[in-house]
């Protein structure tokens, strides 16, 4: 990883590192270690009786309930949204595609009844087709 980052020229140079930020990060870690190492683990501290302290302890022990909050908001939201998106894909996008396919089949089925054997019917169809094509071409020519 460091090799890749170096090759991509992504690692900041030492000149860009801010000493104050480094000091604060290291100091906060060191203070935490010092408090943890010097605080005796008394019975009262391990499970206090007062509700406020108990609440505070649980709040810290369960990481401010971030996991449960995350589970009940983001995870549930993503789950619901993904289900909705897949429903849309399956029934709307794919439904339109299948609908077009079905319409083509039904159109073909319906057209077979137009085969009457009368030549004037065929002539009318051809004339209508040419007329529509001509109208479309002249319209598109004007459009361009």
């Amino acid at each position: 990883m460091p090799v890749v980052l170096t090759r991509l020229d992504l690692l900041p140079s030492l000149g860009q590192v801010k000493p104050l930020v480094v000091l604060l990060v290291v100091a906060s870690g060191a203070i935490g270690v010092a408090i943890g190492a010097t605080t005796p683990l008394t019975r009262m501290l391990s499970r206090p009786l007062q509700p406020q302290r108990r609440f505070m302890q649980d709040l810290l022990a369960y990481d401010f309930y971030v996991d449960r909050f995350y589970e009940r908001t983001i995870v549930r939201l993503v789950g619901l949204f993904s289900t909705a998106v897949y429903w849309f894909d399956r029934y709307v996008v794919d439904g339109i595609v299948n609908g077009v396919g079905l319409a083509s089949i039904m159109g073909g089925e319906a057209l077979k009844y137009s085969i009457s054997g009368r030549s004037q019917g065929y002539m009318l169809t051809i004339l209508l087709g040419i007329g529509l094509l001509g109208a479309f071409l002249s319209w598109s020519k004007m459009g361009f």
Partner: peptide, 10 residues
Amino acid sequence: LFGTFSAIAQ
């Protein structure tokens, strides 16, 4: 996003 969300629901 469409592909990704649909993948989650599979």
